[in-house]
Design a protein around this nucleic acid. Structure first.
Lengths: 203, 203, 203, 203
DNA sequence: AATGAATGAGGCTTCATTCAT
DNA sequence: TATGAATGAAGCCTCATTCAT
């Protein structure tokens, strides 16, 4: 009915898909249910997306983009440690703000792994790569070895992912908020050790 | 095919299910495919399990049990920190040994969350609870506050889960082995801070 | 694309339809595919033809007309036998020139039979009737009984149709060329017998 | 309901498919309609045939087999000419007996041409090849050159096919019966010429 | 007890067509 | 006029499950 350009309509379906995927899982996200959630006839979905696969792929890209945006939004801070902590917190906050998003991202990771093996990496790696870039660019800290950057990025990704899984498993917001603190402190401890010992090797 | 005690038969189906779930996802694990993987007629599966749900529930329990076994297998060690590190490593090794198991466990977490909200916790919480028990029982360390135990258990669970996600996303064994070290060092750093400062508050 | 007189536009669609029907069969010739082949938007097709049925009907007429033209193009020759042979050859050449046309004609025959029983005859009968007219008008041969004319027309139609089926089944041009000769000789033999004995019965 | 072995059930579906194909064309022969004609639930059809394509392929083979049987059933006769005439008549009678069969065979030819180009030949060529074998084996006639056999087989095939098309187009039985005579006479005339002139070239 | 046969429900996709601009 | 947008109907296929042997 709305008679809006297909490109715009796609956005509606993506949103609907995120919701449904979060609720029923990637395979429970049938075209019918997604269309219903989008309040559109089933055929309309197929007018905008030739294939269910196409739609999911778009949701996938949408998710990956959001990760990148969140990461990039955490502009470099004073020093590397602060930047890292900031990145981790932003990610966790992001999950906390929308359990749907967290769930969908998780589901998509599995979907991508099954489907196009190399693609599985894209959501995940897109975020990790963006983190590396941000970490590298911290002005006030001396340039670090690539390996150091990699490790920090890995640490953040791992802690964020672990936090997300916990949060989704227990679905208890107040617990999660406390766990955010713990998770941050875990990163802090490690960074303190890691960033002291490594720069010992001066350029 | 005949004359196998039903109990044994079930084991075959559980194994088959783990394999299929890892490969095709929880919804891609159709009864037909599981039966095929088990080299049994489709009807036989429904003869052993009234419902697909029943089978998955069994796989679920199987997975939870394995987690508990792994955790308990890490008998208490010298001190709390060593015990904790030991637990984390055992879990990571377990994932590394069988990506199928790791994948299936992950899939089941999602499945349980969707299905019976409280159950989602069982796999996850079963393991965490077991960890708490083991951590509590460390003889040579002074009894710790419940909160401390909880936090350590959370840290291990989070790091293990994050590690698993990474490993599944990249599926690169040699990278994963290195990341195991990093993950361990992350826990170590934090434990060093955490276990020093807290006991400072004497009972 | 715009500003083309509707009549001309229709011609484009007819051509496109012939191509698509030949390639994918009458039911495989969807409006979308025909529009695509015509390099026109789907809606434009329905702007020119209210209904798919209408378009096919036009293709049908186009085909029937072409048959008539081919037959009429074989102006009467010296004697009846020569005229008949000429007709047959022209038809076969026509099929040989365009397998697409042959295929489409065949498909349309089936379509018409299913749809409007009486219409099935039109393509076929249109051609046969035209043949009768041409055969009747052979100046140098004595006027023949209607029955004779009918039989000759039937013979030509049958041989042409049989030839076409063979040609489409094997799709081998060089074989088909040889078979054209054989087919012609078959008609010749029969005409020699038929045209001698029958005129024996004078009006 | 019948609870009969799947192999047997297939026969029912083949018969139903022939009927539906004849009535609605190969693409109008939807699984639903075929199942309905077979008085079976749609899902049952897919229990017996994994794919619609599989079913059609079976109908295809069924048709080809029937052609071969008809041809082989015309055991060699006195001399080559008689054998040939006999073959042609048997084929025409076969078409006349069942317009459904004739129509389906025609539809399948087109289907096969579109689908697996080489297969198109099978129905057609299967019959032609069988004819060649029968023609070769005529005891009382001197062994003929391969070319002669080929030509005769071609003549029969062409005349039979042409006759079928006519019969299907007009669907008038009494006319068709008369045309059978004409068609036979056409073959006779040609054989008389062909079989006289050729053996003139002695081995 | 064990399993081939059978099936209703629902999955994704495509079709011809209409609507609104 | 010309065409993107929209859609109900129908296509093929697969699923979990039950039935009858």
């Amino acid at each position: 009915m709305p008679r809006i350009p297909a490109a715009e309509r796609r956005g509606v379906f993506i949103e609907a898909a995120v919701k449904v995927i979060a609720t029923r899982g990637i395979d429970g996200a049938t075209t019918r249910r997604i269309a219903e959630q989008a309040q559109a006839p089933l055929a309309t979905l197929h007018y905008c997306y030739r294939t269910k696969e196409d739609l999911i792929a778009d949701v996938y890209d949408f998710t990956a983009r959001r990760f990148r945006d969140v990461v990039r939004g955490s502009a470099p801070h004073a020093d590397r440690a602060t930047t890292a902590r900031r990145l981790l917190r932003r990610l966790m906050e992001c999950y906390l703000e929308s359990a749907d998003f967290a769930t969908t991202a998780l589901e998509l990771t599995g979907w991508a792994r099954r489907r196009h093996e190399d693609r599985s990496i894209r959501v995940y790696d897109g975020a990790v790569e963006a983190m590396r870039t941000v970490l590298r660019g911290t002005a006030s800290s001396p340039p670090a070895e690539a390996e150091t950057i990699d490790e920090i990025a890995y640490a953040i990704a791992t802690l964020a992912a672990g936090f997300a899984l916990n949060w989704l498993a227990y679905a208890d917001q107040s617990t999660a908020v406390k766990q955010m603190e713990i998770t941050t402190s875990i990163l802090d401890s490690w960074l303190a050790d890691r960033l002291v010992s490594v720069p010992a090797a001066p350029g």
